[in-house]
Design a protein around this nucleic acid. Structure first.
Lengths: 112, 112
DNA sequence: TAAGTATTTAAGCAACATCTTACATACTTT
DNA sequence: AAAGTATGTAAGATGTTGCTTAAATACTTA
């Protein structure tokens, strides 16, 4: 999961993921979507995404087709979602607690 | 979202998030959980997490209490979950397609 | 108000990430 | 087999990150 989250931290790599999430796309076609960076740079991003388990490769003749690999995303997505819901739970608790506090306390909880 | 995902890419910062996901924790208590790195290092991580919108601060006298901020996680979690489900959809489609392909094609699709 | 406690900010450095150019590999077509 | 096309690997320059120590800020207590 560590690798997956590090991989997803880069905006270029996220754009690549979006590009291949519906259908497989060849390395060249991917690179064409990023005119500002060289083909080798894209190739390196692809390597990192594959190593992180986020992409699958299919080699067909000359070309290599990349596509999203759901298993790779699962762990990372679950981590964030878990944190997110735990945080929401805590928020709800805090709201209740605050309501109770309105009666017995004055202003300790204010930020100022 | 860019900032949130970059923030979450670091393992120390993820550990901090886990630490404060249920209840608020003071900077000192957080730092105590990471004996291997200095207090200023932890403070810097906290700054990054706050800047990314992932943490809230409550200042109380001398101390500062940090806690998870669900809104900050929402975007990032949604991004990953969206990608993940899109990828699963594609997988299902591919399975169907492959079944159809068993009839009319020979072995182009194998990786070897 | 002086000393103590909790925490952050500043400055500098070492490690790592990302980009580029040049070269290598591997298939395809003539 | 030679030339062409698609892609990856290597090496090095540059920018960014994350750490450390030293100093500053902010609040508390004697």
């Amino acid at each position: 999961m560590d690798e997956a989250l590090r991989a997803v931290a880069d905006p270029t790599r996220r754009a690549i993921l979006v590009l291949v999430r519906e259908r497989e796309v060849s390395a060249g076609d991917i690179a064409r979507h990023f005119p500002d960076i060289s083909r080798p740079a894209v190739s390196q991003h692809l390597r990192i995404l594959v190593a992180a388990g986020l992409l699958d490769i299919r080699r067909a003749g000359n070309r290599r087709f990349y596509r999203l690999r759901p298993e790779g995303l699962a762990e990372a997505a679950t981590f964030l979602k878990t944190m997110w819901s735990a945080s929401l739970d805590r928020l709800r608790d805090a709201a209740e607690r605050q309501e109770r506090a309105r009666n017995g306390e004055d202003g300790v909880r204010g930020s100022r």
